[in-house]
Design a protein around this nucleic acid. Structure first.
Length: 286
DNA sequence: ACTATATCCTGTATGC
DNA sequence: TGCATACAGGATATAG
């Protein structure tokens, strides 16, 4: 599941593959991934021909590929979106939805997406920062991040801390995997009210999140299966470094107690029953 | 404004 | 063997 490190791996791959190249042909094989383009699939394809890509950008889990004309191709990988770069005579990847051919007859760009939660759109004037991304908060790897301000903002929230970490309008880029990793490192229960956490602890938590995402990025991200791969189709290696996510029943790597898996927001949360104790308030709620 | 939940989507795993 | 169900979880619409 692509979170910030995985999206950044893809961004870097795209930078090497498409920067400066001119689109000659676009084929939309399934309408759903371009559903945000109001003109429909055919208009999407025609509108892109003749444009030249500049250096891809990212904020949180959003990715956009600016064109030299000031517009941009906006992309979100959702759960299972992939960009692949391959010679035109190579077979299309499974679940391939959109194919881009270039005027230089070099490798094609292919967008594949099994579950189609992701998608592509044309952002008019979006080369710097697409309007569609303006509501997304700055992410933890952005040099412009004001950590103290973020800590203060988080402390105004009454929701459980994991909900806040997953809220892309407060801090972006964190998904279920890295949220659980950061909470384990900071020894926090996911349901601890954000406004009950000392500023110093929140600073530690965000530092942990930033560290774990930086380390994941360095090894190509986290892959559990073929749903996340880089533009060459290769997996990342961070799964072996996970301390919490997916470790139900396995010993906590700090204290040895068996890790728990609990339902949370239609997904799962993994935590240590001893290092990450529930807050009193959560117990009252039942 | 904030908070919480339902929804979209399909391949894989599991249970009967 | 088949059928049904649970699960994975991004962002967003909607309800409270």
């Amino acid at each position: 599941m692509p979170e910030l490190p995985e999206v950044e791996v893809v961004r870097r791959g795209l930078a090497a593959a498409v920067d400066g190249r001119c689109i000659a042909e676009v084929r939309v094989l399934h309408p759903r991934p371009v559903r945000r383009h109001l003109g429909g699939p055919d208009d999407f394809a025609l509108s892109l021909v003749g444009r030249t890509f500049a250096e891809p950008r990212r904020r949180g889990k959003y990715l956009w590929l600016p064109f030299t004309d000031g517009d941009a191709l906006l992309a979100h990988l959702g759960m299972s979106g992939q960009f692949r770069v391959d010679e035109a005579d190579r077979p299309l990847p499974q679940h391939c939805r959109v194919v881009f051919g270039f005027s230089d007859d070099g490798p094609q760009l292919r967008f594949a997406d099994q579950r189609m939660f992701g998608g592509l759109a044309i952002s008019v004037g979006g080369a710097e920062l697409p309007d569609e991304v303006a509501h997304i908060a700055i992410d933890l790897l952005d040099p412009q991040l004001d950590l103290a301000a973020l800590v203060s903002r988080i402390r105004t929230r009454t929701s459980g801390i994991k909900r806040v970490l997953l809220n892309q309008q407060i801090v972006s880029g964190i998904g279920n995997i890295y949220a659980d990793e950061a909470l384990w490192l900071a020894r926090l229960h996911y349901d601890t009210p954000a406004n009950a956490i000392p500023a110093a602890t929140l600073t530690e938590l965000l530092g942990a999140a930033r560290r774990v995402m930086t380390e994941a990025l360095a090894v190509g991200g986290t892959s559990f299966d073929s749903l996340y791969v880089n533009v060459n189709g290769s997996s990342g290696y961070f799964e072996r470094s996970l301390n919490a996510y997916g470790r139900e029943g396995l010993p906590c790597l700090r204290c040895g107690r068996p890790m728990l898996r609990e339902p949370f927001m239609n997904r799962s949360s993994f935590r240590c029953p001893s290092c990450q104790r529930p807050p009193r308030r959560a117990a009252e709620r039942g």
